[in-house]
Computed example of a mutant assay.
Amino acid sequence: MKLMNHSRRHCLLGGVAAALLPWRAGAQDTAYPSRPLRFVVGFAPGGPADGVTRLFASRLQAQLGQTVNVENVPGAGSTLGIARLSKMTADGYTIGFAHTASLSIGPSLYKNVGYDPLKSLTPVARLCEYVNVLAVRADSQWRSLSDLLAAARAQPGALSYGSAGIGSTNHLSGELLAAKAGVKLTHVPYRGTALAVNDLMGGALQFVFDAPNSAGPLAAAGKIRLLATTGRTRHKLYPDLPSIAETVPDYEFRGWMGVVAPSGLPPALQQRLTRELELAAAAPDTAERLAALGLDVAFGEPHELARVIAAELALWGPLIRSLNLTVQ
């Protein structure tokens, strides 16, 4: 991932810092923050979500001058953490990690998640985005997505793909492909994408969707072959790899990660936290650290995050219901 040049970065940091001056100057009046913050993440320690949370928690801690404690609340595709967050006090001292699974997919997939993604939370910022890549065995007969889809049309249901589980983003990447391309594919859920990739290489599956940072090294080692990315346009890490949309118009999967707070967060505190997260996202090594997790910096204001959540609920909700997918 390319970093912005020095002068541009300097201007961005300077602009964000200038936007924070009224808060810095009025610190004695606002007295915020005057105690530690909690940062709730709905995943177990380790993995990209936890890594992103801890990266931004450390940034906020340095910028705010207060401890930011990460609280892991794993379970139910990260919806348990969001459910707990939604019932906490909206005083600026508790924020939470939000992402495609918990706010765009989970509310349609899980029964009684305990929150409304548009009403129970205050959007604070989008931090980053990610795409998946479609991979086949290195010796696969399919050299392109068109080849794979032709085989799927010739033998409906014969092609199987693996995922990290029902409702995971790599599962729904496949279901969206089937819906948009008008083909029948067979989904095989696993307890983690790594197990699915192992079975792909062993010949038990025909393809998988995986994250670029884990699939890329396997492709470079000649163990799998990448056919396409799930973004609407080509990814900058893979300029020679076509997007699925080049073959299947209107296809796009691009996941996101961000920060939310309980509903009712005062606008002044929302703005403060948004500006602090923007400053953290613009820090010199943030892009490299996110790239190592397969993520791209994509900072977004609260209204942008709210728009993305609403749009994705409209996309994934009908698809999940049409497939009769539910997880207890």
Rank of each mutant, 00 (worst) to 15 (best):
A311R: 14
D296G: 10
H99F: 12
D210T: 02
H6M: 09
S140R: 01
A306G: 14
L305F: 07
L121F: 04
L60I: 08
S104F: 06
K180P: 00
G26C: 14
V260H: 02
Q61S: 15
G202T: 05
M88A: 13
D210P: 09
R191H: 15
A179D: 15
I166Q: 05
P318L: 11
A211V: 09
A44Q: 13
Y161R: 07
Y115V: 06
A101S: 05
L64T: 14
A138I: 09
L121S: 03
H99E: 15
A138L: 04
A83N: 13
L134D: 05
L64E: 12
P107R: 14
G300A: 15
A179F: 02
R289H: 06
K2G: 12
I244R: 04
Q28W: 13
P266A: 14
A204T: 02
R38I: 05
Y110M: 05
D285M: 05
R232G: 01
H303T: 10
S7H: 15
R38Y: 12
V124K: 10
A196G: 15
T326M: 09
L290Y: 03
Q328R: 11
K236R: 10
Q66R: 11
T326P: 12
L149G: 06
P123S: 02
A245G: 06
A76I: 04
S86Y: 01
V136T: 11
N112F: 09
P217R: 10
A283S: 15
P242Q: 13
V260M: 06
G157F: 03
T230R: 07
A152M: 07
P189D: 13
H171V: 01
L177E: 09
A261R: 04
K180M: 12
L195N: 12
R143V: 04
L277T: 00
V308S: 02
G106M: 04
E312V: 07
T89S: 08
G157I: 01
L293G: 00
L295N: 09
V124W: 09
E278C: 01
V70Q: 07
G317C: 01
S86V: 00
A287T: 10
V52T: 02
G203V: 05
V40N: 03
Y32L: 15
E301G: 01
G92D: 08
V68A: 06
G81P: 03
A178S: 13
G77C: 06
D139Q: 13
H10S: 15
L103E: 03
A101P: 00
L319V: 09
R126K: 14
L290V: 00
P45N: 03
A101Y: 10
L55H: 14
N132T: 01
G162N: 09
A268C: 07
H235Y: 13
A287Y: 02
D50F: 11
